[in-house]
Each structure stands twice: as C-alpha cells, then as structure tokens.
C-alpha cells in the first residue's frame, strides 16, 4: 500500500487535523491519520507527529505518549531512514522517546506563548529542509508552554559539529537569538535532527502557516518536501 504521509494521533493530539489539511489539501500529498494503537507503518513514505497535548501533557510533555503501541514501529521506521517530522508536542514526544536528543523545558517566561516568529534554516541536509537553503528565513507561528530546547553542552556541541541544528529563532532579517528566542532555548534552537537527518523535531508550526489569509504560507515551503518523500517511496 502507498499510504503517503501518516499523521500519528495520540489521545490529546490537537494539531493532527491541521497537519492533515496542510499535507492533503494545501500540498496535495496523500495523507491520513494514524491511530496511536496502529503498528503497521510500512506503507508510509513519511510520518508526522503533530502538535497538541498528548495525554494532557501530564507528568512531562510527551512522557506518556512514548509508550503508545505506535512508537515501536515508529522507531523501526526511523531506523530504516524513513522521514519523520515532530511538530511541537510531536517534537516533545520524539525527545521523550529518545529519537532526538535533548528535552523541551518550560518557556523561560513560565507562560504559554502564542505568536508568529521567524526561524533561520540551518541545514538543508534533512529530507524536511531539502527544498530550502541554509540561511532561509521562515515566518511561522509558535504555540507552546514547554518550548525551551535544552541539551547539555556536550550534546549541543555535537549537534552543532554534525550540522544537526535544523532551525534557530531569529528576527525578520535572520539575526539569530536575542529577543527572538522568546522561550529561552539553548543556542536559540528551534529544531534538531537525528544523526541520519531523517528524524526532525521542530517547535514552530509549519502546518499553521499555509495561507496568506491566515497570516503567512511559509510553512508550505517546508512541508512541500513531503511530495518528494512520497514520490521517492515508490
């Protein structure tokens, strides 16, 4: 079966339908929701873990979701090099599942943030940024309470050395950090990738920036890469 893109829905996910609309209706790639109890992911060309509050984000964001039945096959999918994108809560689940290094901590303000931000693309060497260039600036919304990326110095140094920082918070001109790093992420990191580059976690929401009517469509520039992934799958 050619499943296109699978959007994995955990109990409490709430960005799943937005991701589905963005992929299926705005990009035009086949996509469907995947229940957290499903275990056969073999047919998908790519997987997206959407935003939300899986299991209420109780205990820690993403902490309980990582024990869902779908996570072991997700791990296998990632190990085979399959492209995986975790957005917001999906990013948190990927770190809790140790598919990505680090953790997402409370925003430094201790408040939930909802606003548009800019991110600078730091590498084109992931399937999700393949259509972009290093240095591209995207304008995307954020909406999170636990958005401050943290990893210890050694891990951050490794991420930098291996080119696995995918995006950083910046201003409209691409200047990284400062006020733009509103949540207090280490090294203004907004997204990171796995060693193979195929698993990417991103705190801002590309699936919400899909129409100028909504304030911007830069998210499509990133998500369009799914067309290539699904085409390559056959």
């Amino acid at each position: 079966m050619s499943g296109g893109v699978g959007v994995i829905t955990f109990p409490g996910s709430n960005g799943d339908v937005d991701a589905l609309h963005a992929l299926r209706d705005d990009i035009g790639v086949p996509a469907r929701l995947v229940d957290h109890r499903e275990t056969d992911l073999a047919g998908f060309g790519a997987l997206v873990l959407p935003g939300g509050f899986s299991y209420g984000d109780y205990l820690r964001s993403g902490a309980i979701a990582r024990f869902a039945p779908v996570v072991e096959p997700l791990r296998a999918f990632a190990a085979r090099g399959g492209p995986v994108l975790g957005i917001c809560n999906g990013f948190q689940v990927l770190t809790e599942a140790h598919l990505l290094p680090g953790a997402l901590l409370r925003n430094r303000t201790l408040r939930f943030h909802c606003h548009w931000t800019h991110v600078r693309v730091e590498t084109a060497a992931t399937p999700w940024t393949a259509d972009l260039d290093e240095g591209d600036v995207l304008r995307l919304p954020v909406a999170h309470g636990d958005g401050a990326y943290y990893a210890d110095d050694e891990t951050v140094a490794r991420l930098e050395a291996e080119g696995r920082v995918v995006a950083r918070y910046c201003d409209a001109e691409g200047r990284v950090g400062g006020e733009a790093n509103a949540n207090g992420s280490v090294a203004a990191i907004a997204g990171v990738a796995s060693p193979g580059g195929n698993v990417v976690g991103l705190m801002p929401h590309p699936e919400r920036a899909t129409d100028p009517l909504l304030g911007g469509d830069d998210g499509l520039r990133m998500l369009r890469a799914a067309l290539t992934m699904v085409a390559a799958q056959v």
Partner: peptide, 13 residues
C-alpha cells in the same frame, strides 16, 4: 491573548 492559542485549527483570519 498571547497566552491563548489563537492559530490552532488554521482558520483564524
């Protein structure tokens, strides 16, 4: 309102 998610559901014009 900065503490409220107002972009979810991608319909806020």
């Amino acid at each position: 309102y900065g503490r409220y998610d107002h972009t979810i559901q991608t319909s806020t014009v």
